[in-house]
Design a binder for these strands. Sequence first.
DNA 1: AAAAAAGACAACCGCCAATAT
DNA 2: AATATTGGCGGTTGTCTTTTT
Length: 334
Amino acid sequence: MGRQPCCDKVGLKKGPWTSEEDKKLINFILTNGQCCWRAVPKLAGLLRCGKSCRLRWTNYLRPDLKRGLLSEYEEKMVIDLHAQLGNRWSKIASHLPGRTDNEIKNHWNTHIKKKLKKMGIDPVTHKPLPNATEQTQTQPEQQQQQQLVHQPLLEQHQQQSFPVDLDSKLEPEYDHNKEQEKPETSFESSTITEAKEGDQIMTPLLDSMELMNVFSTDEVPIIEPDEIPVPCVPSISSTSTSSSSSSSSNSSNFLEDLLLPDFEWSHNYNNNTIDNNKDNNNTNMALWDDDFIRSWDLLVNDDNDGDRKQVFDAALYQYPRMIMDSESWDYGLF
DNA sequence: AAAAAAGACAACCGCCAATAT
DNA sequence: AATATTGGCGGTTGTCTTTTT
């Protein structure tokens, strides 16, 4: 017996989301929280299927999402995690606060894959490509990069012997042969601890980054149990970001459209981080604090549409509670 | 300047596992 | 226990933008 479709698809809209639809969905979620997705479109007045709404929310509208290109650090982390987890994008994403599996998957397919190939690394196995030697010999710069990006991560995995707790639930059933040759960095040498229930994320990468003096542990987006991760903010400053957003004339620009040109999200948040990531423009994790609330208020007050303002006002003060109540909220911290 | 090709990313599809009935 | 429902995941496709010819 085949599975029934998640919804009656007749008359449902498909394709890119319009800003109107985004507004409706945001208003609904902010007001009511994440409930049964199947019911969302009907209640929110959307001609979309629930699945589509969930996807739109989790991938693009959630306020805690970072936008913009992955930083070099994030990219390294993705490579590192991919070497250990394979194409389990959601697992990888769980180690990168503010990033979605879809985003990481896309970035992998469009950027990292090519980069690794250029560097003479097989993006599937994370081993040197057969002709890598020749390549790297003729491309010393790339070789240098390869050493910088990959070697430290992989070798440290092998050298260090931390307790293995990577995905222990999933690991036994995970068939590496199914998708790829078992990577050099096997689970046996893995050091990543699954980030769940507020556990601290421990990755070899973080250690290596420390060693490399690139990031201090203070700057690493480790979420402590007593920290509230923050609904973060779309990166406005990142014009680069919008490599993506610019491409979509309507929907993806919605949040940016909402933002005033000189509007700054949560001024207090981790200024150090900002300073240290000027080039990347995408470290936007912020604390859900008064400033953030005020920012929303500011945003809302600037809107001429009175009705919408009301909706947002209501939603604004409910949202933190909604997050606290929502068991499904990412990172499982609440 | 226009057309074609390539690149980038948002969104969809189908499957699966967990949960509810 | 069996079946239905829902949410989540990964692969793939479609569409828009940018670059090249």
